[in-house]
Design a protein around this nucleic acid. Sequence first.
DNA 1: ACGCTTTGTCATAAA
DNA 2: CTTTTATGACAAAGC
Length: 613
Amino acid sequence: MIKIKQPKKKQDDMNLIDILWKQDIDLGARREVFDFNHRQKEHELQRQLELQEEKRLHLLREQEKALLAQLQLDEETGEYVPRPMPSTPLPTAVAPLQVTQNVSFTEDSGDAMSFDECLQLLAETFPVEETENISVCLDTTAVVPMMSPEQPALQPALPPASLSPGPLSPSPSTQMMSPDLEQAWVELLSLPELQQCLNMQMEDTLETTTNPLSNSPEVQSPNYSFYPATNLTEGGTNSVCPAEFMNAFDGSLPSMAPANSLGEMNTDAPQLNTDFTAESFGEIFYPNAILEESGGQHSLDGNDSDAMSDIQNKAPFTPVDLYSLSPGDSFDKHSLKAELPDSDSGISSHTSPNASSPGKSVCGDGSYHYSDSDMDDIDQNPLSVEADYSEMFSINFQPDDVQQVLSVSTLLRQPQQQEMKPKQHKIDPEEESGQNDSPFTKDKQKRRSDVRLSRDEQRAKALKIPLSVDVIINLPVDEFNELMSKHELNEAQLALVRDIRRRGKNKVAAQNCRKRKMENIVGLEGELDSLKEEKECLQSEKIQNRANLKEMKQQLNRLYLEVFSMLRDEKGNSYSPSDYSLQQSTDGSVFLVPRGLQKSKKKYCIYTKELWS
DNA sequence: ACGCTTTGTCATAAA
DNA sequence: CTTTTATGACAAAGC
């Protein structure tokens, strides 16, 4: 199907896209209906496919940016991660990560190798001590973060130079990941501290969560139940969600892991579970926040550390545990759908030509008035946004259930935003240098969509709204109101939040509406076809009936003549057909009627005979 | 330049 | 009355 649609594209793109499609069916499911309807609108289908691809790529890039953001954070903490040259990719396990980095660097500066190096460090530092369970877990899950079904989508985004399909070796290489590295990742993913960190930001959201175990994904998942599956109508939720989730972690965790590896983990890799404290993770993720908000942080640390210790003491990590880390499908959806787009928006803003001019600095004034121009300003002014978010983060750095849920998105996003500024600087030169000529010719459309997606988010940033757009949109009304009450927002912020929520919901509604409309059209077309077919059948049947009727008339005429010829008068003479005719009455009696007297046959009936009985 | 498609948004009605 | 949903209409952007 894809290949059929894609011939217009370049062959290279075709291959990459094909791979992407094969491994990411979910996103395409959204409009498969139309694809299979043979509407003979190939251009439309192609556009749809392209859009889907773009979405995937956006998600991937966002994830990548999250990784980069984490790296940035590392730098902020003072743990600068040296970035080896791209020409020195790690052969096996590192390869997939490299892919992701490359993707991000297609738009960003090519300093991705630091992450690879971090991975390598991880692999080196972590001995192979795992139980089989863990290894199995890695096969099924741990690998996922690096090579989720969507990961292959990254390849298309890679610049031709970096693509080099051979060396990248998508999934197999990941499968080949060294056990120790895998284990390290598993441990990282399973670390309660990590979960805590993910949950840190949204402190105010829910105070109801006193249970330390609330940090566990199982507890979180219910919170996400509100996320409608419709949000992910692009594809099957089941298959996508884990991958997305893992990707989300891929964006955050791997980056963290390197930081840890450089810092604490290098020394005590085996003791990760016990050695890591909430603070350490907090530092990893939000060094600034910790430094700035040490007070609130410590209180949190106490609570969380307890919870963490409980969780840690519980049991060895099994595949189930690893999956349990994910807050659930809703989380996956949430993180990817919302956060990635957000980050994507940031990317887009960076990549957009307008964003290239960092001069404007008047956006975060907190004024509620915003227009496209304002938005442009905001887009072009990552600094203000960054500062705003740093503030937000510091404020939000507390544990709560809801906040955990929310924080996941915000966490994933914030690093990106913090990194926005550097990225922009890096990206712009590349674009100017002709990076735009990358295999994907839809960058403009991507950017547009990104900008679209980022509008409300940018506005939210401008007004320092401490909630992610996704949360604002998808949170149930009760929780939403609760959040609104907990976050002391001014009138402008409240208005913007409500507008964001309204627009976001309406956007989804419009999408659903259009989808239904198209489905209706398709259904009506099918019905029309069936009716046409039925009509043809009826017409053929009519023709057949007409032929049968003709035949019957002929037979009747022959019979009539036969009967008529058998009639004789008193003298034994036959009647002339020209003078007489046979007519049948309603009671079945047949009369021989003179032709001139047919109208009043009864009156002038001369002979009556029962010809039929 | 023109037309078409897609997508987001607004206005409005209905649930 | 408020919120959500559905839908027509419009505009912007891309192709």
